[in-house]
Amino acid sequence: MQEADFDVGAEIAALTAGHARAGAVASFVGLVRDSDHAAEHGGSGEDHGTPATINAMTLEHYPGMTEQALEDIVSEARQRWNLLDVTVIHRVGRLLPGERIVLVAVASAHRGEAFAACEFVMDYLKTRAPFWKKEETPQGGRWVDAREADDQAASRWSQA
């Protein structure tokens, strides 16, 4: 958890340093969008087809629980796949469109495990880590609603 931006290249270099067996790194970077296309469906606005403009986004979190939740998610990923190392960085505070929010990077011997574990960590982070987004729009502040699609994405990992 940090307010400052991160350097993706430097983080990946640090992740694989000392891991001579690392043959693969899969990474995901989440960014702040400048508009919310979800708002044009099911939203209350009358101007269908025009995405809501987002001027900035503020990320709130639950200090202490956030760290614990992320550690639990990474440790579950390590039980499911043979991973060499995992980096998770999540920013908090006020961010502008285009800014990086989150980085998940996974190193493993082969790509299959790195791809799967990276997606798993993001799916669980979205549904289990205590972060909340508030968008600043021309119409005022608006807390982002949780998405059903995120729950579905996370639940596929628990199917037998």
Partner: peptide
């Protein structure tokens, strides 16, 4: 994270919040 029927004891830290929206 707990369910509604979970017991609370002296000294606990209890938190209430909406569904999470990070990432």
């Amino acid at each position: 994270v707990v369910n509604a029927d979970n017991a609370i004891a002296d000294g606990d830290e209890v938190a209430f919040f909406p569904p999470v929206t990070g990432g």
